[in-house]
Amino acid sequence: MIEAEGITKSFGRVEAVRDVSFTQPAGSAVALWGSNGAGKTTLIRCLLGVMRCRGSARIGGVDVRSRGRQARALVGYVPQELAFHDDVRLGSAILFFGGLRRVDGARVSASLASVGLAGHERKRVRDLSGGMKQRLALAIALLADPPLIVLDEPTSNLDAAGRGEVVQTLRMLKDAGKTLLFASHRPDEVITLADRVLVLERGAVERDTTAAELWPTEKPVQVIRLHLSMASEAHAARVLREAGHAVHLNGQGLCVAVPRDQKAAPIHTLACSQIQVRDIEMLDDVDIPEGTP
């Protein structure tokens, strides 16, 4: 569904994306994992043809640069947060996007209903909660029933309940055979949805792996997020890895996968190295789907 070859994008001297190549078959779900500034968002924009870059990208066999319109017609895009004119009413906003995709009113209504927004047409975009906005973005992305859905950290502004809803919806889309490409900060989402994880670091694909490999789990594991001072994060990660923990640094604290019965172990390890932990967060139960490698 996606064929990317040598995608490179620089802003001035900084190379935000460096020579990224990958192929994503239809029906699969790929997660982009990486710290803030690793180039996830830029890569997505390049793939959608919103930004001009070197290299080539094809969506469903359609070249993004030369036939961007046709290529993007195959994509439903969900941003981190829906950005649209604040005082537009929800109904007219979605109708506008429907108009761009040759979608009729009945289909628009159905799409709204499918994300539980039926009856909110007269609300203005500025009055929507974060969750509703993301559901609206999803509804817009799904309007034309595209085969590929691209999401850029779709849950990062949502609370637990909102996240759950979005993840569940994505799960259903995946089951229905859609191709998913998403950037995420959250291991639980990655583990739940992704068949494959591309780990980005400083713009380049560092590892092409799976969630199971990233977070090996013979035993049931709990992913915890440790909040430390920024300065000590790198040091702490090294210490924890030396102690045999699976660690990931992704800009919002340190994610550590630990056996369920040893949740305090990383804190202890850090305490021994005089690294202070400010806060701990239990990430939602990670449900590793059966049959996923």
Binding site: G91, S92, I94, G105, E121, R122
Partner: peptide
């Protein structure tokens, strides 16, 4: 012209 989507709701209770 603004295409209307469904009838205007009577209240915000829906």
């Amino acid at each position: 012209r603004q295409a209307a989507l469904g009838p205007a709701p009577r209240g915000d209770d829906r």
